[in-house]
Amino acid sequence: MTRPAPSPAAAATRPIVDARGLWKRFGPLTVLKGVDLSVAERELVFIIGPSGSGKSTLLRCLNRLEEPDDGSIHVDGIELLSRATDINAARRRIGMVFQSFNLYPHMTARQNVMLALRKVLKQERAQAEEAAARALDRVGLAERMDHYPAQLSGGQQQRVAIARAIALEPRVMLFDEPTSALDPELVGGVLAVMRELRQDGMTMVVVSHEMAFAKAAADRVVFMADGEKLEEGPPAQIFGDPRHERTRAFIRQIDRH
């Protein structure tokens, strides 16, 4: 991928994602209670935590699919929550991959990838076709470009969804349980694509229960519970020597599976 190399100084002083004091309420329910999250360039941050702890909500705030009630979010130096921000321009720098893929069922794989290239980046058809083909090739689906989602396996669909996001050359990719809806034998292919992305230097925030992947690929693991970030650190520390009792209980519980 061609991307201007960031100056080391800028990378050191300015994280790609910098969320501070995020609060989010749904009616009487407070789902995020002042969460901070900062992600450096090329970093892979893994978020774990019990169901309902607010992991998805946090992720969805990071591209403003969910509107936080309070706090600030800078992505690549742009304040997402400011009124002056063109959210659509900002979002194309933030790729997102969903648990349920959310491919457009009436479009082929290539058309799925092309839509935003044409409508958001305003690329010519030929240029968009080529960029889409490249993105699909990157996720190992060059052969399946003209298939509709219904003609693809779950794993292939999720890889198309990844291609749809990376074709826009985002600065950061958000993954919300990308493999949870997949049959076990299809998980590996999606994780392999994510690992390659990481090797190519993509900044990533991943919510997932794939602990083996976290141990192998994450730079940092964040443990959330009840809308708060309880603990964070390198995978070896979080999985091997968690400080917080709730983290310990959570790790014990998932280790049993």
């Binding site: 591209n63 659509n88 959310n102």
Partner: peptide
């Protein structure tokens, strides 16, 4: 149409109208 369709489209920078 499932809500995820709109979310996926918006996450790629499409406007609501698009």
């Amino acid at each position: 149409v499932p809500a995820g369709q709109m979310e996926a489209a918006r996450s790629t920078g499409l406007t609501r109208g698009q």
